[in-house]
């Protein structure tokens, strides 16, 4: 890692990645703040909430675990809940895996550990445009480190100021809005749009399922629908060609 950092081209890509994330910063700030406030409002002490934020760094899993911790649930139930809530990251890992195989185990561990929804979508969008670009580990690190910093600042602010921050002011909606511009380029193809529509509908209909399993079901159905539509539109296109 130290050797990479000495390479100016590597550092430049790291900076590019960090800059790439800045436009969605308000969304990350909003989500981080909401999660920080929720941690202290659930009764977690400030030091433990800080520790959880810094080490776990997984908003939806933390929110799912809070009521279980408050009810003194056994650790294995908390672990299973977090695994289920985080299941979408396994799909992200499967999708990005082949672009990162050349890097060391340590580097892949770290990249995986600090990755999230934003870094995944931004990384896939750039790969779609440019293919296997040079120093993609640096670029991804830049995105992830910036995301981590913004999230922690907001989460810590929420933990420290939690008692003074009202929870019912639609703040987390800003986080949702920050995701919109990331969706829009990927739904320009028929297959992408059909898959997204299916994924969203299933996720909405199965919203009440436990452990965010409705979200996972939506992603799986969406990918399947997109693939079917893609093979259909592609084969139609091929036949239409002279």
């Amino acid at each position: 890692m130290r050797r990479s950092w000495k390479d100016p081209a590597w550092r430049a890509e790291f900076r590019n990645g960090a800059r790439e994330l800045l436009p969605v910063a308000p969304g990350i700030l909003a989500w981080g703040l909401v999660t920080g406030v929720a941690m202290v409002k659930s009764g977690l002490s400030v030091p433990l909430a800080l520790l959880m934020s810094l080490l776990v760094y997984a908003g939806s899993a933390q929110l799912a675990a809070l009521p279980l911790i408050a009810a003194s649930a056994p650790a294995w139930i908390i672990a299973v809940t977090a695994l289920a809530t985080n299941m979408r990251f396994v799909i992200y890992g499967a999708a990005t895996r082949r672009w990162l195989t050349q890097y060391s185990t340590r580097r892949r561990s770290l990249l995986g550990y600090i990755s999230g929804d934003f870094s995944f979508v931004l990384f896939m969008n750039r790969l779609e445009k440019e293919g296997a670009f040079a120093h993609r580990d640096a670029w991804l690190f830049g995105v992830c480190v910036m995301n981590w910093l913004i999230w922690q600042v907001a989460s810590i602010a929420g933990i420290v100021g939690g008692a003074f921050i009202p929870t019912n002011w639609g703040l987390q909606f800003a986080g949702t809005l920050a995701l919109l511009p990331l969706v829009m380029p990927s739904v320009r193809s028929w297959a992408g749009a059909a898959g997204a529509l299916a994924a969203g509908s299933v996720s909405m209909a199965a919203n009440a399922w436990p452990y965010k399993s409705g979200l996972l079901a939506g992603v799986v159905v969406g990918i399947t629908v997109a693939t079917v539509v893609d093979s259909f539109t592609n084969s139609v296109g091929a036949e239409a060609r002279p």
Partner: peptide, 24 residues
Amino acid sequence: ALRFAPACALTALVLPEVLGPAGV
């Protein structure tokens, strides 16, 4: 198939938040 994962994951995250914040 996995290249469709970003679009699907994001809409699956966003749509319930927008169309049914109360769960339905």
